[in-house]
Amino acid sequence: MDIHAAAVMTDDADTYLRTLYRRHGSALLRLAARLLGGDWHRAQDIVQEVAIRAWQYPMDVGPMDGTVRHRLFTVVSDLVTDGHQDQVEPSVETAGEAEMVLLVTPDAVDQALTAQVVWDAMADLAPPQREVLLHLHYLDRSISQAARALGVPPGTVKSRTYYATRALRTALRARGVTDC
Rank of each mutant, 00 (worst) to 15 (best):
A115F: 02
E99I: 00
A123Q: 15
M100S: 11
E99C: 01
T105M: 07
V104S: 11
V109E: 15
A126H: 12
A115W: 03
T105I: 02
A112G: 10
V101A: 10
V118C: 04
A126Q: 14
L113V: 09
A126V: 04
D110K: 03
V104N: 10
A112M: 08
Q111H: 13
V118I: 13
L125W: 05
A112F: 01
V101C: 02
D110I: 00
A123Y: 07
L113A: 11
A123L: 09
V104D: 13
L103F: 04
E93K: 03
A123H: 14
A112P: 07
M100Y: 01
A126S: 13
Q116H: 14
V92G: 04
L125K: 08
Q116A: 15
D120T: 14
D110G: 08
V92I: 06
G96T: 04
T94R: 07
A98Y: 01
L125T: 07
V109T: 15
G96S: 06
L102S: 15
A121S: 12
V92P: 00
V92C: 02
V92W: 01
A121L: 04
D107K: 05
T105W: 05
M100N: 12
A98C: 01
A126T: 14
Q111A: 11
T114L: 08
A98D: 13
A95N: 06
A95R: 03
M122F: 01
Q111E: 15
T94S: 12
D107F: 00
A98M: 02
E97C: 02
Q116N: 14
A108V: 10
D107M: 01
V101G: 07
A112E: 15
A121V: 03
V117Q: 12
Q111S: 11
G96H: 03
D124P: 02
T94W: 01
G96F: 00
A112C: 05
A126K: 14
T94A: 09
A112H: 13
T105C: 07
L103P: 01
V92F: 00
V109R: 14
D124H: 11
G96K: 03
E93M: 02
V118R: 06
A98K: 05
V118L: 04
E93Y: 00
Q111P: 02
V104K: 08
T94V: 09
V92H: 07
P106R: 12
A98R: 11
A98G: 01
A95H: 02
T94L: 03
L125E: 10
L125Q: 10
A112V: 07
V118N: 06
A123T: 14
T114W: 03
W119P: 01
G96C: 04
A121K: 09
A115N: 12
T114R: 13
T94N: 10
A95T: 08
D120V: 04
V117H: 05
W119M: 10
V109G: 09
L113G: 11
D124N: 10
D110Q: 07
A126G: 06
V118E: 05
V118M: 04
Q111V: 04
E93N: 06
A98L: 05
A121Q: 11
V92K: 06
E97I: 06
L113I: 03
A95Q: 04
